[in-house]
Amino acid sequence: MSSALPYKISVLVFIENAAGEQLLMLRAKQPNLGVWTPIGGKLEMATGESPFECAVRETQEETGLVVTTEQLHLFAMIAEKAYQGHNHWLMFLFRCKLPIGALPPDMVEGTFAFFSRAAVDTLPIPETDKKALWPIFDQHKHGFVSLRADCSVAPIEIVVEQITAGQASNP
């Protein structure tokens, strides 16, 4: 039963360049070794770090881009049950409203590249990203959605728990 697995809390930050291309990292470590994902990381729970604080920290650590919480938009929360059979994850998804000026240098976590949104769908990306995260980004990046994904079954079961419409005119 998946309930005995540890629970981890993380953030993902969707960042674009001025041309509207998505910044993705080819992961060099687990989870998601060898696939492309937005940047992000785990909350420092021992310090009481909030998801917004974590998104600000991870953005600077992984890309060098310095942002404030006001330059981030929380557009989704997703609970993944039994991801890869190892952990449950509670993820907070942010859209960075500040474009990044240049490709960050490679790091121990992985290498970076920019991709058009259409090209993202052709890349090796995690199954949950393909089925849930990118469609959520496309539909709700200016609003908010909460959902859960049961990764312990095939196909993955995704349930939307709440949607708040946004205004597409937001930068």
Results as ranks from 00 to 15, higher is better:
144 F>E: 06
159 V>M: 03
140 H>L: 01
103 L>I: 10
70 E>H: 13
64 G>L: 08
168 A>E: 07
100 I>T: 06
153 V>H: 12
156 I>H: 09
61 E>P: 01
92 F>W: 11
83 Y>D: 02
84 Q>R: 10
151 C>K: 02
152 S>P: 08
68 T>S: 15
109 E>Y: 05
85 G>K: 09
83 Y>F: 06
60 Q>P: 08
112 F>I: 07
106 D>C: 04
87 N>A: 11
155 P>C: 11
82 A>Y: 02
155 P>R: 01
168 A>C: 07
91 M>V: 15
152 S>N: 14
134 W>Y: 15
105 P>Y: 02
131 K>L: 14
168 A>R: 15
168 A>F: 06
120 V>P: 05
95 R>L: 14
120 V>Y: 03
82 A>R: 04
78 I>S: 10
165 A>F: 12
169 S>L: 12
78 I>L: 15
129 D>Q: 10
64 G>A: 13
161 E>M: 14
135 P>Q: 12
96 C>L: 04
159 V>R: 03
152 S>T: 03
98 L>E: 08
112 F>A: 06
64 G>M: 02
114 F>C: 11
144 F>T: 10
132 A>P: 00
114 F>T: 13
63 T>E: 11
68 T>V: 03
63 T>R: 04
97 K>F: 02
79 A>W: 10
58 E>Q: 08
137 F>Q: 02
128 T>D: 10
60 Q>M: 15
126 P>C: 05
78 I>G: 05
96 C>F: 00
158 I>R: 03
159 V>H: 04
99 P>R: 08
128 T>Y: 02
166 G>S: 08
132 A>F: 09
156 I>Y: 08
127 E>C: 07
80 E>L: 14
59 T>R: 00
149 A>V: 15
104 P>C: 12
157 E>S: 10
58 E>L: 09
99 P>C: 04
115 F>S: 06
141 K>F: 00
86 H>R: 05
142 H>L: 00
164 T>S: 11
82 A>I: 03
117 R>L: 11
110 G>M: 06
84 Q>H: 09
94 F>T: 00
117 R>E: 10
72 L>D: 01
129 D>C: 06
86 H>N: 15
143 G>C: 05
135 P>K: 12
114 F>G: 14
57 R>K: 13
70 E>T: 12
98 L>R: 14
166 G>L: 01
72 L>V: 00
117 R>C: 02
144 F>G: 07
146 S>T: 09
126 P>H: 04
71 Q>G: 03
62 E>G: 11
87 N>H: 11
109 E>Q: 14
130 K>L: 13
159 V>Q: 13
91 M>I: 08
128 T>S: 11
99 P>K: 01
73 H>P: 06
103 L>M: 13
59 T>K: 01
158 I>S: 01
122 T>S: 04
131 K>P: 00
63 T>I: 13
98 L>G: 01
166 G>Y: 07
112 F>W: 00
130 K>M: 04
77 M>L: 07
153 V>D: 10
144 F>Q: 15
140 H>T: 00
62 E>F: 04
140 H>Q: 03
99 P>N: 00
80 E>H: 09
95 R>I: 07
64 G>Y: 02
110 G>P: 09
163 I>Q: 15
123 L>Y: 04
116 S>Y: 04
92 F>M: 03
77 M>I: 07
99 P>Y: 03
164 T>F: 02
132 A>L: 11
164 T>Y: 00
117 R>Y: 06
121 D>T: 09
74 L>H: 09
133 L>H: 09
165 A>L: 08
117 R>S: 08
